[in-house]
Design a protein around this nucleic acid. Structure first.
Lengths: 264, 264
DNA sequence: AAGTGGTCTAGACCACTTT
DNA sequence: AAGTGGTCTAGACCACTTC
């Protein structure tokens, strides 16, 4: 927490002089002040200076620290809020986003019951083990093929009805000490555990969805017939800096549920 | 295009006095000025005062028209741009968004080839007819059951390979004169035709995705075996004012394609 | 040169929450 | 009363496009 202002392209420009960020020579890596501020705030989030759920400094305080106007800090935070990295609360302050909230629960679980509200979800851990990253997983996680990864297999049930069979691969280097016991004991969303216990926060993911037929193993776990049509959902999740830190393959039963999506 | 300013909660408040929007009595339907401006601009978009692809008045001109500062208009337009209703172009102006652009093509078509770039898409219209809205369609379109709707069935091919069988239902009142010939002749995205020829612009949609097995009819159309797993995608599209104006049911073959989604 | 959106500042006041 | 984010204004200058 240094009190000296970090490197800004345009530090301490006097008012009325406006930027200065500009024309002088060729500025190859030019970016607006508020983008630089945004990057600095993101660094503090990433480094853990402010942890999930905590209050970050007020706009006025950050403006003082960075030697810019409150409006510039505001614009930076506006974008961070739009990306769900922070949450603004009028009168209280700005908080680091966390997966420990009903609000953010269903951002990463798009399977909804056809009727009624999201139900109680249960989690059964089938398997947790270390293994060498398969080529495809290594490629997606951006690690060397053969690097240590943690493999998890689990079944999720909605209101007691098993609906999802899921396999996960996590970089071993980031999740040392993750055990089946730890996962089984933990109540709440898995991403909450990841952020609290391992300091890795998922902020974005991409999913590829296909239709497949249930194999024998999956059918047995879900009490359905082999050959039942299911959604195959492949996810890659990213943390700060667009670094991939989770690969997931889920098989979703959609007899009484559907994958909900918004296009806009 | 009246020059008299419309009804604002806080018209012509002198500077330094700030809003005035406030405490005085109970303002039950209070909303910030920029939200009111945003609603007024949206009305002009909806009414066709500015048509898709056209330039809207500059921020300064709108500020003058509405008797507010440029900053307030800017914030209103910022939100409209975030919702993809308009597109800002530095140095040129702000344009009404349109479906006639590569940029907006793949916002409403999420099926991607597993490898490489989106390919050439072809369209075969199988059927166009008027019928009375089935109960479920009527409910989703928010019309009376039995009201006239236009039904369309088509097959879409990527690079000559048939991949999608799709059925659409449109309110008959909004799409008078829509024929199979018109749909077949038209080159480009169907939503482009809707906005240009019928004045109805789709701005948002929700999709529910399930896994199903191909029936005999679908299998024949796509040259696959009955019982092949497919994505069943049910879409409801909305125009200005969150009014539903299209119901769609697509069956997607995902042997060499996938439904791409971003979670954030 | 003129016009557009984009950035930055400074200051005022409002709405909300906590002390 | 004090502190926070939310709204609104006014003015300056920059970056980009067109004339």
């Amino acid at each position: 927490m240094s009190s000296t202002p970090p490197n800004l392209t345009n530090p301490g420009a006097p008012p009325g002089t406006a930027a200065g960020n500009s024309a002088s020579g060729t500025s190859p890596t030019f970016s607006p002040l508020y983008q630089q501020i945004k990057a600095l705030i993101t660094q503090s989030l990433q480094s853990g200076e402010w942890k999930p759920g905590e209050l970050i400094p007020s706009e006025i305080e950050l403006a003082g620290r960075f030697k810019v106007s409150q409006g510039t800090v505001r614009k930076a935070i506006d974008e961070l809020a739009a990306e769900n990295l922070v949450v603004r609360r009028q009168g209280k302050g700005t908080f680091v986003a966390t997966h420990h909230e009903a609000r953010a629960q269903y951002r990463f679980l798009r399977l909804m019951p056809d009727t009624g509200e999201p139900h109680h979800a249960d989690n059964r851990i089938l398997e947790v083990k270390r293994l060498r990253a398969p080529a495809e997983v290594a490629r997606l996680l951006d690690v060397k093929s053969g690097d240590s990864v943690i493999f998890i297999k689990r079944v999720q049930a909605f209101d007691g009805e098993p609906i999802i069979v899921e396999e996960l691969w996590l970089p071993g280097s980031l999740f040392k000490g993750l055990t089946a016991e730890r996962l089984t004991e933990y109540k709440g969303p898995m991403y909450g555990l990841f952020e609290t216990e391992f300091g890795t926060r998922m902020i974005r993911a991409t999913e590829k969805i296909r239709a497949v037929l249930a194999d024998e193993d999956t059918a047995r776990l879900l009490n359905i017939a082999a050959g039942t049509p299911m959604l195959n959902v492949e996810r890659v999740s990213y943390t700060y800096g667009d670094k991939p830190v989770e690969v997931r393959r889920g098989l979703y039963l959609t007899h009484h549920h559907h994958y909900q999506n918004e296009l806009s």
